[in-house]
């Protein structure tokens, strides 16, 4: 069953994201080095980079888990450091490997996430029912989350991400290690959110997904943004052929920065 139907709940008010001179240090390690980005309202923005490039740090800073060493992040007009609670209300975050509360049932877990995000009980029950039905998880409503398969857990995590109808979505590797059927569900879900006008940041190693869904893509390496633009401008920056695949563009742009990330 397609899961995009439940997500056609009407458009959401649009919010832009502004990141200025963002730096994050872990002791002596510079994880993010003066990163600046502007993501326009309703845009799906791709974030690519080798392992350890700083993608997850950037996303964790964006959603308020980490605090910037310097620089600012604004969700709409709200500074996430100055007013984190207000900013977090607007964000839905899907972690790279979501750690669900495995001792709760699917229903309990979703209720918990909805309640701490301020969703009213009536609306929450309706949202949970519709979402579970849409993802084909109705019969798992009373199963412990710990007993679900990886694909099912990812679907539950997606539902949890959007229960409070966020205006901004931050998705960290949403398709990692999923079977083809679940990947289709997740892609449908992302498409549904995009159609609602949700501003989305999509970090992924799946270059096809980035090329399909993202209007613009940023490539990050060694904590720095090495290129930003649509696929055409990235090809231009990388001096590749006009029909070059994103994979070739990505490799060219990250190779130019220096060493092979696998050797770091």
């Amino acid at each position: 069953m397609s899961c995009s139907s439940v997500l056609q709940k009407g458009s959401t008010s649009m919010v832009e994201i502004s990141i200025e001179n963002l730096t994050k240090h872990y002791g002596t390690l510079v994880a993010l080095d003066n990163v600046s980005l502007k993501i326009t309202s309703g845009e799906v923005f791709g974030l690519l980079g080798p392992n350890g490039a700083g993608k997850s740090t950037l996303l964790k800073t964006l959603v308020g888990i980490l605090r910037p060493t310097s620089g600012t992040i604004r969700i709409g007009a709200i500074d996430i450091v100055a007013d984190p609670e207000k900013a977090k209300k607007m964000i839905g975050y899907l972690p790279e490997n979501p750690s669900l509360y495995t001792g709760l049932t699917t229903q309990e877990f979703l209720q918990f996430v909805g309640k701490i995000r301020g969703v009213s009980d009536d609306l929450l029950d309706r949202e949970i029912s519709e979402s579970l039905k849409s993802f084909g998880l109705e019969e798992k409503r009373n199963s412990l989350v710990g007993t679900l398969s990886k694909g099912m857990k990812q679907k539950v995590a997606l539902i949890a991400t959007s229960l409070h109808s966020p205006q901004v979505l931050v998705l960290d590797e949403p398709l990692t290690a999923l079977d083809p059927k679940t990947r289709v569900s997740v892609k449908d879900w992302i498409g549904g959110q995009t159609a609602r006008g949700v501003t989305t940041i999509l970090s992924t190693h799946d270059l096809d997904v980035a090329q399909t869904h993202a209007g613009r893509i940023a490539i990050i390496d060694h904590g720095k943004i090495v290129a930003v633009g649509d696929i055409e401008s990235l090809r231009h920056m990388a001096n590749t052929a006009s029909d070059a695949r994103l994979e070739d563009v990505f490799l060219r742009l990250t190779e130019e920065k220096g060493e092979d990330p696998a050797r770091r």
């Binding site: 959603v63 888990i65 609670e85 207000k86 977090k88 669900l100 701490i116 995000r117 301020g118």
Partner: peptide, 8 residues
């Protein structure tokens, strides 16, 4: 971390 720290 994933669900409480990212909540309001």
């Amino acid at each position: 971390v994933d669900y409480v720290f990212t909540s309001p």
